[in-house]
């Protein structure tokens, strides 16, 4: 009787996941497979849909991997991500330390959190065009500010310098994400058992010692999680480089997604090459995702181990 009852209810498990599965098959799996297939074909030209498989199947992949603009795009994506991520994590950690330390009660924390996080919620496209206006040449708020305070004598053309273009894109990325990272890290710190901090306090640890020897090791998983999700987000950078200077000057802010867009929806509409580039990116992202998976597994495993050890210890005591 009991068994029959669970059987009849298990039906609803399948029934209720049907919408997800159907949408998943149509809007995720099919496009992924379709993209993969297009990567092996000659599909190109505006509004083309018919294609033939290439006699040399990996030709598009080879073309993409050896193309200097794709390599530049990949290098730019990584470089811009690193320039943005290092200060992002440093300042996020610094604010986390300050906002969670019992030694300094900073007033207005709620206000600071709200303000630091705000750029994250604003449309990236708008932010990109806004920064282009802010750093325009010759008249722009930034040039006005810099000349007013005598930092530079005459307006600087931020748009033709490759270095400044990269730095500004990285800065926008930093500016949009440090608040988010900070809030994630603060919630991570609040999740640490307060007894650990009490013990450190009683043992006379300095703030720096507590932070580096206790807080950071306890945040290890969250730090890794933040790093890898930020990395995947960084690998997909599109809105800002595209609308800030459209990949320029001289491909200095060309990212892989801007490259894919330009291949497929501009110029000669090389859908096949763009598809091959997408698949290469998918592989890179999948490798990162697997890294996250392993991380979770390790964490869960260590939890189980700890529990087992704890139980064993308890058993010893009772025996």
């Amino acid at each position: 009787m009991e068994k029959r009852k669970t059987f009849s209810y298990s039906r609803y498990g399948y029934l209720f996941s049907i919408p997800f599965v159907v949408a998943f098959l149509i809007f995720w799996l099919y496009p992924i497979l379709y993209t993969a297939i297009i990567g092996f074909t000659d599909l190109k030209g505006i509004s083309a849909t018919k294609f033939h498989f290439l006699s040399e199947p990996f030709k598009n992949f080879k073309t993409v991997l050896t193309s200097s603009s794709f390599r530049t795009a990949l290098r730019n994506t990584v470089v811009i991500w690193i320039i943005n991520f290092i200060p992002q994590i440093v300042f996020a950690l610094l604010f986390t330390a300050w906002f969670t330390s019992p030694r300094c009660k900073i007033r207005g924390q709620g206000f600071f959190k709200i303000v630091f996080y705000m750029p994250n919620i604003m449309t990236a496209a708008t932010v990109a065009v806004l920064f282009q206006a802010l750093f325009a040449y010759p008249t722009s708020p930034m040039n006005d500010l810099l000349t007013k305070f005598g930092i530079i004598a005459s307006p600087f053309n931020f748009e033709v310098s490759k270095t400044s273009a990269k730095l500004i894109v990285a800065f926008i990325q930093f500016w949009m994400w440090y608040g988010y990272t900070m809030i994630i890290l603060i919630s991570g710190v609040l999740g640490i058992n307060p007894e650990i901090f009490e013990a450190a306090e009683i043992d006379g640890c300095t703030s720096a010692q507590t932070f580096f020897r206790i807080t950071i090791p306890c945040l290890r998983t969250i730090l890794l999680y933040t790093t890898i999700t930020a990395m995947i987000g960084g690998l997909n950078m599109y809105d800002i480089p595209r609308l800030y200077l459209n990949g320029g000057p001289d491909n200095a802010t060309l990212t892989t997604n801007v490259y894919i867009y330009n291949q497929a929806f501009a110029g000669s509409y090389l859908y096949n090459r763009a598809a091959a580039a997408s698949m290469i990116m998918l592989i890179i992202i999948a490798v990162c995702s697997i890294a996250v998976f392993q991380m979770y597994k390790e964490k869960d495993q260590s939890k189980v181990d700890r529990k087992r050890r704890h139980l064993a210890a308890k058993k010893e005591v009772t025996e």
């Binding site: 995720w28 993209t35 497929a264 992202i285």
Partner: peptide, 27 residues
């Protein structure tokens, strides 16, 4: 198995599937 599938696609951004998605919608 279903939950593993959900987890596996947690990190995949839609942008990498865009070419196939566009072609499908265009057709």
């Amino acid at each position: 198995a279903f939950f593993s599938l959900v987890l596996a696609f947690l990190m995949i951004p839609m942008q990498v599937t865009s070419i196939g998605f566009y072609q499908m919608m265009y057709r």
